[in-house]
Simulated scan of single mutants.
Amino acid sequence: MTKLHLGCGKIRLPGYVNVDVQPHPSVDVCADLRDLPFDPGSADLIYSCAAIEHFGRRQWQPVLAHWFSILKPGGLLRLSTADFAACCEHYRENGRVADLLGLIIGGQKDDWDWHGMVFDFAILAEGLEAVGFRNVRRYDWRETDVGRLGIDDYSQAYLPHMDKENGRLMMLNVEADKPAG
């Protein structure tokens, strides 16, 4: 089974081909996520956490279409991105935009760490379906390889920070299927 971890940054997932635009010891393949060096229909699963929001308003759907082409028929795409609806709820309750800056505009620590898009479930589902994905649904990070392996990535970002029992999940965790036939 071929599993790709796109936009891996410094997080290496065992059993995955870890891909990022910047070289790190965790990266197996250094490549732009808009132009991946994988054959069409070659991946069973694509996981991408906190990467799709780095593409602009008119760029993210073509990126998803590219990823769709790399998945095998019947393959699974699993995405995690900041949940704009959760950010709005947090802001309404706390009135602190400072808590949300990293989620909304990125960390801005380097040339790649800027966000060009925000998502709620409806806009992400609509975009996924527009490029061919079906059965778009939320997933629980605890039931994925990340959760089972005890790897802490942004799919489990909560406010208050790290309060996974009582905090609000700030990430939109969505998966979708490439039709089998």
Rank of each mutant, 00 (worst) to 15 (best):
residue 120 D to L: 00
residue 154 Y to H: 15
residue 104 I to E: 02
residue 125 A to T: 01
residue 64 L to H: 01
residue 28 D to F: 07
residue 6 L to S: 12
residue 169 L to I: 11
residue 63 V to Q: 00
residue 164 K to S: 10
residue 18 N to Y: 09
residue 44 D to H: 14
residue 145 D to F: 00
residue 29 V to D: 08
residue 168 R to I: 12
residue 57 R to K: 13
residue 168 R to D: 03
residue 56 G to R: 10
residue 168 R to P: 00
residue 9 G to W: 14
residue 168 R to V: 13
residue 49 C to K: 03
residue 4 L to Q: 07
residue 20 D to H: 13
residue 60 W to C: 07
residue 98 A to T: 15
residue 178 K to N: 02
residue 142 R to N: 04
residue 161 H to P: 09
residue 20 D to E: 12
residue 54 H to A: 03
residue 94 N to D: 13
residue 40 P to W: 09
residue 59 Q to T: 11
residue 176 A to P: 13
residue 27 V to H: 15
residue 181 G to R: 10
residue 39 D to E: 12
residue 148 R to G: 01
residue 106 G to D: 08
residue 137 R to T: 02
residue 63 V to A: 09
residue 137 R to L: 01
residue 81 T to M: 06
residue 71 L to W: 10
residue 62 P to W: 02
residue 156 Q to H: 09
residue 80 S to W: 05
residue 5 H to G: 04
residue 174 V to W: 06
residue 52 I to H: 08
residue 125 A to P: 00
residue 139 Y to G: 08
residue 135 N to C: 07
residue 181 G to I: 00
residue 42 S to C: 05
residue 132 G to F: 00
residue 134 R to F: 03
residue 165 E to C: 00
residue 41 G to I: 02
residue 67 W to L: 12
residue 176 A to D: 07
residue 94 N to M: 11
residue 142 R to W: 14
residue 90 H to E: 15
residue 75 G to A: 13
residue 52 I to R: 06
residue 79 L to M: 08
residue 18 N to Q: 08
residue 38 F to N: 07
residue 10 K to D: 15
residue 72 K to M: 13
residue 10 K to M: 11
residue 86 A to V: 08
residue 68 F to Y: 14
residue 64 L to D: 04
residue 86 A to W: 04
residue 68 F to N: 02
residue 88 C to Y: 12
residue 87 C to M: 08
residue 6 L to E: 11
residue 102 G to K: 05
residue 61 Q to H: 01
residue 78 R to V: 05
residue 19 V to F: 01
residue 86 A to G: 01
residue 12 R to N: 06
residue 93 E to Q: 15
residue 4 L to K: 09
residue 140 D to C: 10
residue 3 K to E: 13
residue 130 A to S: 12
residue 56 G to A: 11
residue 10 K to N: 15
residue 76 L to A: 03
residue 21 V to M: 09
residue 21 V to F: 08
residue 14 P to M: 05
residue 118 V to A: 09
residue 83 D to R: 04
residue 15 G to R: 14
residue 102 G to Y: 10
residue 148 R to L: 07
residue 175 E to D: 15
residue 138 R to N: 04
residue 83 D to E: 01
residue 72 K to W: 05
residue 15 G to T: 08
residue 102 G to F: 10
residue 20 D to L: 05
residue 159 L to F: 14
residue 53 E to C: 08
